[in-house]
Amino acid sequence: MLQKQETVIEFRDVSYSPQHRAIVSNLNFSIRRGEALILLGRSGSGKTTTMKLINRLLTPTQGEVLFDGIPTNQWDEIKLRRKIGYVIQETGLFPHFTVERNVGLIPALEGWKPKQIKTRVFELLNLVGLEPEQFAKRYPHELSGGQRQRIGVARALAADPPVLLMDEPFGALDPITRLEIQSEFRRLQQELGKTVVFVTHDIQEAFVLASRIGLMDTGRLVVLGTPEDFLGSQEPEALAFKQCLRGIASSEASFPQFSDGDSNNGKWI
């Protein structure tokens, strides 16, 4: 797939160290329009922090993050965030709102007419594979984990933002539902051409979704490249993550064989 090389988000020498405790340091990279950048790393590696620097839930203590060419601290923070969809683990839905109100939240805040909102909500529910008539009036606690996550995605897409930030959105799902929703989300992302920044600690998930993978280790971005680049990397943290891939069905085209002694011949161990 051809991609425009246009930069949407750019990190320029960004560090975030509140009270002189470095959480992330010296980040220099850009995110291109339409790509899915997966920030991969262990817990505490600074990936979530990096993401929050984009929608200004955090502001850099050094350097700057540019969104559409303008540093985030010069944006009106509300306007900035309305341009960026935000999905977090399942708790992000408002428990006292119906599915319809949850999904229609941003359009409502933007002052859309009730009719427009309803049309949009139904459209989005169809898009994420939930029957609108059946789900619109339900509350989040009446849904399964997978359904909640679909609603979370629908809500983030509601006002059609060009960029989506997703913080381990599928982390709490069972593996089968997760795989299903991952591949659906991959299709959706390519169809809609959204720029996605996706945080995960699951390397399998990274490979399913990524156009590029950014590997973070103790606050630094140590590898940034396509999944193929990642597999070729000799960075110790990358090797450690690749260890986790071993034993996963390597017969699938997207997972190249690993030949390091134990010949598993593409079978599950």
């Binding site: 509300i78 965030r81 960026i84 969809g85 977090i88 839905l93």
Partner: peptide
Amino acid sequence: DPAIREAGRGMGMTDRQ
């Protein structure tokens, strides 16, 4: 739940909203 508050802020709700 702080996650709910953060989701709201992250989506661009004002403090009042």
